[in-house]
């Protein structure tokens, strides 16, 4: 390359050096991560562990979902299919094969990833609203399959799934033992998602989100990148569903229902699409509303609807998105 040679790269490399030390987190993100980890450790002292486990499962589900609209620009309306398949497969294998918890969870994730490979391959052929409609239609097919198939138990679902052992030796019967497993699964998933976003692959994804024709004109075969992102998102959603079935000991049609797909969109939207921490915050808020407004019955749905409308009208970037914009940080 001709032109004046530039020696002033020190600022950029110095910053990168720091980021490498902090697993790719910026200063603000590292602070947020410390708060998140502290909340996970201290949470059970204040709140009901089963509630927190549910929040963590949904936080992972929403973070996995967020990969697509937030970092590739693809809006999926059918993520319940992957969450539900993970849930069913983990519940079934844990109940009838009696395998360890970690294997059941991995099987759930693998099954969802395989489903994501097929569905993603079909859906990425279209863009925008058509992409969303294809994902929705395919998820509806999965729902129908689950109502009819014998292994899912139809309306009853798979019930009384025993809490499997961890690594064949640790009992997960106590809520707090299981809590640490769920917290571990969430954190590993969360860090992996963060890494995906801040990897060479993630940078190409963001380029595709920003300007797909331009990414193509630079020689990127964008469909392959979209498909891999789709598979990763589906597999992680499946792991979230599988973990959830271990927590509650059931897998039911609720997990694959389209309202579940809507819920994850809502959670992500409230927290902030395209932010690393938004989906987790959204899951906490959403879970809290659902649990603590439960005595009011149908008003839960009304309240959720009102919050959704308020979000879209007043702060479209979501809680974390708005906060990040206010503070001029990337969270």
């Amino acid at each position: 390359m001709r032109g004046a040679s530039v020696s002033d790269t020190s600022g950029i490399t110095r910053r990168s050096g720091l980021r490498a030390l902090a697993f790719g987190f910026t200063g603000a993100q590292a602070t947020a991560l410390i708060i998140l980890v502290a909340a996970i450790i201290l949470g059970p002292a204040v709140l009901y562990p089963v509630f927190l486990m549910k929040v963590l499962c949904f936080a992972l589900f929403a973070s996995a979902f967020n990969l697509l609209p937030g970092y590739v620009g693809l809006l999926s309306f059918g993520h319940a299919a992957y969450f539900g398949m993970g849930s069913y497969l983990a519940a079934w294998t844990a109940k009838y094969w009696g395998i360890d918890a970690e294997i059941a969870i991995l099987i759930g994730g693998a099954a969802a990833g395989a489903l994501g490979l097929v569905f993603g391959w079909l859906a990425i052929r279209r863009q925008g609203i058509y992409f969303a409609m294809i994902t929705l239609a395919l998820a509806e097919m999965v729902y129908f399959f689950c109502t009819e198939a014998s292994f899912t138990g139809g309306e009853d679902g798979i019930q009384q799934v025993p809490r499997a052992r961890l690594l064949g030796m640790f009992s997960m019967q106590a809520d707090m033992s299981l809590y640490w497993l769920v917290a571990f699964v969430f954190l590993v998933g969360f860090l992996l998602i963060h890494r995906i976003i801040h990897s060479p692959f993630g940078l190409v994804l963001q380029a595709i989100r920003e300007n797909e024709p331009r990414a193509v004109s630079l020689g990127y075969r964008v469909d392959q990148y979209k498909l891999l992102a789709f598979v990763l998102s589906a597999a992680l959603a499946g792991i979230a569903g599988a973990t959830k079935s271990q927590v509650f000991g059931i897998a039911t049609l609720t997990d694959v229902h389209s309202s579940m797909s809507g819920e994850v969109v809502l959670i992500t939207l409230i927290g902030g699409i395209g932010t690393v921490f938004g989906p987790a915050v959204g899951a906490l808020l959403f879970g809290a509303l659902e649990t603590y407004l439960a005595p009011f019955g149908d008003w839960v749905t009304v309240t959720q609807g009102a919050i959704f409308v308020a979000c879209v009208l007043a702060f479209r970037r979501g809680l974390i998105g708005e906060l990040a914009a206010r503070l001029r940080l990337s969270l």
Binding site: M1, G17, F23, G24, R195, H198, S199, F201, L203, L228
Partner: peptide
């Protein structure tokens, strides 16, 4: 660039050339 498990700091080796191009 399908290596989603790797940190984007591996791209830092391109910073010098990128700055050269921006300079041009």
């Amino acid at each position: 660039s399908f290596d989603f498990w790797r940190s984007d700091t591996v791209l830092d080796r391109y910073n010098g050339r990128a700055l050269d191009l921006l300079d041009q």
